[in-house]
Write a protein that binds this DNA or RNA. Structure first.
Lengths: 337, 337
DNA sequence: AAACGATGTGTAACCGGTTACAGACGAAAG
DNA sequence: CTTTCGTCTGTAACCGGTTACACATCGTTT
């Protein structure tokens, strides 16, 4: 591994000049640049990232904080974050913050890592984060952006999908395929996106006229939560013929429970989810969903983070990206009843 | 952020002594240790990982090379690798190596990253890796272990599941629930695990007596591959009443295709997959599978890597971990015919 | 002609650790 | 009483970059 001093020697200039060349900082003469270029070429030199990190007090690394990589939504998100970061020669470290008692401990370890590794920014895609913890980040002057979460503190950008509108699209679609009694399986109402989706649902139910009654049961964004919700819905509102679940995982759970209860989808009940994870296309019947632009979310988050890291300045921009309806078998038109 | 010099000053010793204390190297008197302990406590000092990395030419970081984080098998694997690494205060960087034309470019970027970041070891969980590329790793003296792949080069440890035995378990289970004509949807035969699973299938078919005929179609480990395989199987062997797919994703595809063809599972055809990804419990009917000990695989890989990194010495041990049969609805006993 | 600003370069300190080496000390061995 | 050895510590070089600062050159202004 050649070092910058090897390059300097071969090019017949000082290390400072080589460093300036590498960083496009300060003045460099044509001849010097030329010689350095050749020396770098000849030695197949690449600056050492660790040494540079130490000197600059910043490495080209960002972190993603998420609840669980095995959740397909986050896996897809990470994929796009990674791709975007790589395009800019940045590295990504994933940090899963487990729930429950070790959460605090885990977050502290994360904080420590951030500092000791000179991580440049954090994409926060987890909800289980206390304001106190975000303040800790802020105090350390590490840029961060929130993904589909409310900011918790001001002065941090948020990247989000248009949840309310997506919910309206979903419910409208159910109405269009003939559902007249539409129930909602909501997410944890502590989470903003869950509240927004509920709101969109309510708006659209209201738009449906007075004979549409809202039926709402709260789930927890898990498969099991979706299954349990079905039992409650069937009890509360046996005439339900359409269901909008606040995320795909719960919709898939709902599908399971309905299947077990001997209720046909979409013939008896049409169902639609939210997120657009690839899982929705794998099951049978394929699940209609409102797709978040997952790749775009990740890319935008990286954009914003880079911007913050480079130009500083706490912008508190909120990016709201568009969602798209994907109609599939679970809401097929021409149903029986 | 206090530095080691701050600690040294406060403790009234030299930085060398503090460093020795931190690394348990060399001799330290009781009193010195005591004073240093207090100073560290008082300053809330933590050694800077980057500086240490530069000096030691090694950071506490390992890399995982995989094809696609959105594949649930790899997501679950990463999760366990991450947890094990974290226990040892190691960080993990994920590197997805895309297939196709940019694969080589991507791998080169990976190699560069390894060196410039002083990465200590690599877990290779991707199949699209040429011998040449592995040699490149080896030449750079970076320890690595293979996960469920043949070694490609000698002198590298391999962690794997007992594929052949798992396949036998699967097929035997199908027989036990009454299947008499069992087909196999194989993986790409270029991959060793796929070949081993096929072998297990063949052995168990043979054990079933002469009236059992092997029927084999090759898939590609994807959902679509599984769907296509079904069409070929139904054509080739219409009397098939049991299917063993070489991985869960293909089994799920098969389930989809059977559903579309109006064939009931498990009533008409029983089906079982391989891997034990959590997806298998999400679909309906729930998919029977041969579960790889995914968490154990990840943990063991980290173990081996640490061992290599610390004690050097290219051990070429092969770890074969046990698999377990999980019987679910897709192979329910007491089927109709 | 003096002063000035833009251009170009090298020296050396610095980032925050690790570690080779030399030296001090006391106890045990010869 | 020397020698030897184990224990303990500090100085300073080093890892491989970045950058403040000093200095030199040269074309323009005043």
């Amino acid at each position: 591994m050649p070092t910058i001093r090897d390059v300097a020697r071969l090019a017949g200039v000082s290390v400072a000049t080589v460093s300036r060349y590498l960083n496009n900082s300060g003045y460099i003469s044509q001849e010097a640049a030329q010689k350095i270029r050749h020396a770098i070429e000849a030695l197949d030199y690449e600056p050492n990232a660790i040494a540079r990190g130490l000197a600059k007090k910043r490495t080209s690394t960002i972190a993603v904080l998420l609840p669980d990589i095995t959740n397909p939504f986050f896996a897809e998100l990470v994929k796009s974050v990674e791709a975007s970061a790589r395009d800019r020669d940045y590295n990504v470290v994933i940090w899963s913050i487990d729930e429950g008692e070790t959460a605090e401990h885990s977050f502290n370890a994360f904080l420590r890592m951030l500092q000791l590794q000179y991580i440049e920014g954090v994409i926060i895609a987890t909800h289980t984060l206390a304001t106190k913890q975000v303040e800790a980040l802020k105090k350390r002057a590490i840029p961060f952006v929130f993904l589909d979460r409310p900011a918790l503190v001001t002065t941090a950008p948020v990247i989000r999908a248009d949840n309310r509108k997506g919910a309206r699209l979903a419910v409208r679609h159910l109405r269009e395929v003939g559902a007249t009694q539409i129930a909602h399986i909501g997410g944890p109402q502590a989470l903003l996106p869950a509240r927004e989706r509920l709101q969109g649902y309510l708006e659209e139910i209201k738009a449906g006229g007075r004979d549409m009654q809202p039926v709402i049961v709260e789930g927890d964004f898990t498969l099991e939560g979706g299954m349990n919700a079905i039992y409650r819905i069937l009890e509360q509102a046996p005439d339900t013929d359409g269901i909008f679940a606040a995320n795909d995982l719960m919709a898939i759970g709902a599908l399971k429970a309905l299947h077990r209860a001997g209720i046909a989808v979409p013939e008896d009940i049409a169902i639609i989810g939210f997120d657009g994870i690839s899982l929705t296309a794998m099951i049978e019947p394929e699940l209609s969903t409102v797709a978040q632009p997952i790749a775009a979310l990740g890319a935008r988050a990286v954009d914003r983070l880079m911007h913050l890291a480079e130009h500083g300045g706490m912008d508190e921009h909120v990016d709201t990206l568009e969602v798209t309806l994907i109609a599939r078998a679970s809401t097929q038109r021409g149903r029986l009843h």
